[in-house]
Design a protein around this nucleic acid. Structure first.
Lengths: 377, 377
DNA sequence: AGGTGGTTTTGAAACGTGTCATCTAGTAGC
DNA sequence: GCTACTAGATGACACGTTTCAAAACCACCT
């Protein structure tokens, strides 16, 4: 009773139902075009034989697959898994499938996956490229496979892109800290070769100057990488500054830095936000779960993925007469204890309130930032 | 100069190189079977035309795809992304591809993906099923598509599985706490409908009894879910126990609980490990980054994925005469500050040491647990 | 009865590849 | 110069589906 015969084909179904293959195909793809009685008979045959259509044959015949590719820099990074969820949702609604690829920030791996996706004749590719728009990527487009850049602002107008305004994110964080009365604010981040780091810094700087503060009000604490370890080191450097020089707040270029910074401060018996207010960036899951719940700039990640997918599908449908667009989303700021001086007194807040705070922030997720579209020439 | 013609086929290449299609096919699949000169000519033609073989046609002809499916419960969960990496590595080495699917713990989604994978005629499926081995899953196997259970111990001998010994994990955690001198230990976990929770509890219980302690030495703190929120609540309950009843240590069924517990203790000015030693489970990234670096039981995740993939490929190759196996891996314990009384005095440990500690733990990752195989009848 | 218009059904062709039996040409042996 | 052999190249066929022009059927009207 084991090892059933090879898988059934549309021909088997046709024979079993006493119709032609064309009819079976119609039942599958345009059910209304076939008489109810026949349709029922065919469907029963399908069920009885356990027939599952062969997608490869479909693709071959159709010329293109019902699949799109998503190439990210790191599947382990929650940013990308959230983006992937958004993509997945949008694509599934359209009746298509996603192949998720992890380039691990290695160009060779990226290329390997692009080869693979092209071999699969995917309907399109969503990608956060390791290093800009490479020749390989351009080749894809020349082979009529649409490409949309994710979390990157296209430098040219001949490709769609979806990104988040990092300058504005920096502005949000800095404005919040200035409003809280801080007059010396550390910027913890690096390397400045990363556009995101530079943008977030620029935003913060703009706000500080606009507030009429001297340039030195923004204290640069440069670190070699956006890691937890660097956060620890930055914490040590800030803690060891002389009281007069030491900033009263820190804006970290991402949450890992902020968490490291916080751990180091805690270890030295300095408290947030009293001794140092902290704002991170990315709003990772553990921002809310940190020793002191961490304020952070949140990017509309799922929305980013969804928008990218929709743009891609649009391009895949419109074909040649498609206008490329560059969508820029706005992040928003989630204020929690680490930068909120009103909780500095630290009243024994009832547990419920704390739980509610977290939940409210999560619920907010759906609202996302407004969209600024930019139609290509 | 835009929109190049439709994609090139093997026939175009043949024409361009002045050979037959069969020869082009040979160059692609059995290069040694074709004369060096001809081979070079064909390869040049391939490059010049930008030819990329059509995978659908290959699959159709070959009868099966060069792809395997991996269905996980949540792509956002680091456990699964790590497992996915292991799978990916092993599968890529074999020259195949992975389609990663997220069932989001919903049966309908799981079925939808299984349909999809079957339609793709994947070579095999790795899955952590939402609820046991369903009919749908058995149907897959009857259609000659091998299945390997991931992070589940197969209840029957007719399917391969790869899992981690949770009872042993519980033993490790409890044994460590008992060794540290604790005589009242809380078990924080739930719901007990989850096998993992039950197993981890059983392991802890076994150790407590074996140590000659009374059954009451293991204090049950049951929670409704393995979440951060539940951790906060558990922290409140433990903190409010009368000093005589209050345990001096807590073993949490996962790290989220432990992190929540830790935050609540911190908020109440209780310290770890002095007031309460804490051991978590899973060793998520932020275990090391918590306010107090968290001890945790680590599962060999990548290894789990790799083993599962290898088992699947083995089954796909061997065919009918394949012996199903159930592999069980052993987790190991990573001791950090949260349960290490020797650091309770909290000497101003130099930053370097702390950094090294984390790195050493990470380096350990490769060793993994030993494997216990169990050959099917 | 024959014609008309509409709804269903049919079956052959095509998609791009791998396979394999067959053919070709070159070489060595005598 | 003939045979026997081998390495290399060939090309028709099959894989499972969709498409589409044509055929078949049916009901209704004249």
């Amino acid at each position: 009773m084991k090892g059933s015969a090879r898988s059934r084909s549309v021909r088997d179904v046709a024979a079993h139902a006493g119709v032609s293959v064309g009819t079976v195909s119609n039942v599958l793809n345009r059910p209304d075009a076939v008489a109810p009685a026949t349709r029922a008979r065919v469907q029963r045959a399908i069920a009885e034989l356990g027939f599952v259509p062969n997608e490869s044959a479909r693709q071959l015949r159709g010329g293109h697959s019902r699949t799109i590719g998503l190439v990210v820099l790191d599947v382990g990074n929650p940013f990308f898994t959230d983006v992937a969820k958004g993509v997945e949702d949008a694509v599934t609604e359209a009746g298509l499938t996603v192949i998720l690829c992890d380039s691990a920030e290695q160009v060779e791996r990226e290329y390997r996956y692009l080869d693979l996706l092209e071999a699969q004749r995917v309907k399109g590719v969503l990608i956060t490229p390791v290093e800009g728009v490479s020749k390989r990527l351009r080749a894809l487009r020349q082979h009529d496979i649409p490409v949309v850049l994710v979390d990157r602002f296209a430098s040219t107008r001949n490709v769609c892109s979806v990104s988040v305004d990092d300058v504005y994110g920096g502005e949000l964080a800095a404005a919040h800290l200035v409003e809280q009365g801080h007059r010396r604010i550390a910027f913890v981040g690096g390397p400045f070769g990363l556009k995101q780091v530079q943008d977030r810094y620029d935003g913060a700087r703009r706000i500080v100057l606009r507030a009429g503060l001297p340039e030195a009000a923004l204290v640069m604490v440069e670190v070699p990488a956006l890691t937890f370890q660097s956060g620890l080191a930055a914490g040590a450097r800030i803690a060891e500054m002389t009281p007069g020089d030491r900033p009263t707040a820190a804006f970290c270029a991402n949450d890992l830095l902020a968490v490291g910074l916080l751990q180091e401060m805690t270890r030295r018996s300095l408290r947030a936000p009293d001794d140092l207010a902290i704002v991170g960036y990315d709003d990772i899951v553990f921002a809310a779960a940190a020793a002191v719940p961490l304020s952070s700039v949140r990017q509309p990640r799922e929305q980013l993925g969804r928008a990218a997918a929709e743009l891609l599908l649009e391009e895949a449908t419109d074909g040649a007469n498609h206008r490329h667009r560059r969508l820029v989303f706005e992040p928003d700021l989630v204020v929690r204890d680490s930068s909120d001086l009103s909780v500095a007194a630290r009243p024994a807040a009832p547990l419920d309130a704390l739980a509610d705070g977290t939940r409210a922030a999560a619920g907010n997720e759906e609202t996302g930032g407004s969209v600024e579209t930019d139609r290509g020439a």
